[in-house]
Structure formats: structure tokens, C-alpha cells
């Protein structure tokens, strides 16, 4: 009997020690949390540095010909304030700049007017649930490991071509 009590208590404590004390509630509706975990865990291509603009980790989602995909990257600007005005490439029928607004849990994808700001000395992150480059009407299947070029046009830094990796 004594053995049983000790065993039972030990079991009880060990089982309950696993409980997590994390706070209740979730992140629904919080803009800043979006997509910290959405980037597949793959080694990034080397950064592209041109005209004071550094582009790190450019990647696109897999997709099927005729369908859509999105491109994400980290843009650092060592110059004065700049703007990513437009993006072009043969990868899709249309390449657009979009962002996502989380309006009380409603996700609204909005075409960006006037380009994506890349402020002086700052980093602009294109990521899921935020600014991104949209590929509409893919001209080919995008399979994991493929790469394709995109030309990014900045107001000041001009055109920079980067290789995008499909993940």
C-alpha cells in the first residue's frame, strides 16, 4: 500500500510537471505576430548588394502553371529613403506588390499603391501576412529548389535583378 501511494504521488507530480504555464488567449487580430514560422527551413541564397540596397533570403512558394505564388525577402537600405516601385519577370503573367491588412481578424489583401517604402538605414521585410510580391498566372510550375530571376525597380537605386529560390 505504501509503495502504491508513493508511486501514485510520483506519477501525479510527474504528469502535472508537464503542464505549460503559458498565458491563455491567442494572437488573433495582432498584426505584428504574422508569420514568424511561415518560412520553410532552408539555407538562403547569398545576399545581393547593389547601389546601397542589400537583398537577403529571397524566396517564393511552390506553385502550378496558371496559378499564383508569392515572393518574400529582406531588403536593407544603406542609402537615403527609397521605394520599391515595381517588380517584373517572365515567371508570371502579372507581378504585383501587395500587402495584407488584418482588420479585426479579417485578412484583406490589398495592392500597394505608390510602392513599398524602404527607409534610409532601415530594413523592410516582405513576409507572409505583410508586404509581398505576388506572382499571378505562373508561366511554369514552380518546384522546390527551382530559381528564377526578378527585376526589382527602386525609385533611387534603380533596377536590381535577384535570383529567387522556390521553397
Amino acid at each position: 500500500m505504501r509503495t502504491f501511494i508513493i508511486f501514485a504521488l510520483a506519477l501525479s507530480f510527474s504528469a502535472c510537471g508537464m503542464q505549460n504555464q503559458a498565458s491563455m488567449g491567442n494572437s488573433a487580430g495582432s498584426n505584428g505576430m504574422a508569420g514568424p514560422m511561415s518560412t520553410p527551413d532552408v539555407d538562403a541564397l547569398p545576399a545581393v548588394v547593389e547601389n546601397g540596397i542589400t537583398i537577403r533570403d529571397p524566396w517564393a512558394r511552390t506553385g502550378t502553371e496558371g496559378d499564383n505564388s508569392a515572393v518574400y525577402m529582406v531588403i536593407e537600405n544603406a542609402n537615403s529613403d527609397d521605394t520599391l516601385l515595381s517588380v517584373s519577370g517572365a515567371v508570371a503573367a502579372a507581378v504585383e506588390l501587395h500587402t495584407v491588412i488584418n482588420d479585426n481578424g479579417m485578412m484583406k489583401m490589398i495592392p500597394v499603391e505608390g510602392g513599398i517604402p524602404v527607409l534610409a538605414g532601415a530594413t523592410q521585410i516582405l513576409k507572409p501576412g505583410s508586404y509581398h510580391i505576388m506572382l499571378i498566372g505562373l508561366t511554369n510550375d514552380l518546384k522546390s529548389g527551382d530559381t528564377f530571376p526578378l527585376a526589382l525597380t527602386y525609385a533611387n537605386a534603380g533596377q536590381i535583378t535577384v535570383s529567387i529560390e522556390v521553397r
Partner: peptide, 19 residues
């Protein structure tokens, strides 16, 4: 009594998402 103690101790998992 002890069995109840063990079981009850383990039903209070705190969900991380909104319940």
C-alpha cells in the same frame, strides 16, 4: 482517492490558443 488525484491533476492543461 489517489487514482482520482492522478487523473484530475492532468486535466488542467492550459491551451495556448483561445478556448
Amino acid at each position: 482517492f489517489l487514482t482520482t488525484l492522478i487523473l484530475s491533476g492532468c486535466t488542467s492543461y492550459a491551451f495556448k490558443a483561445a478556448t
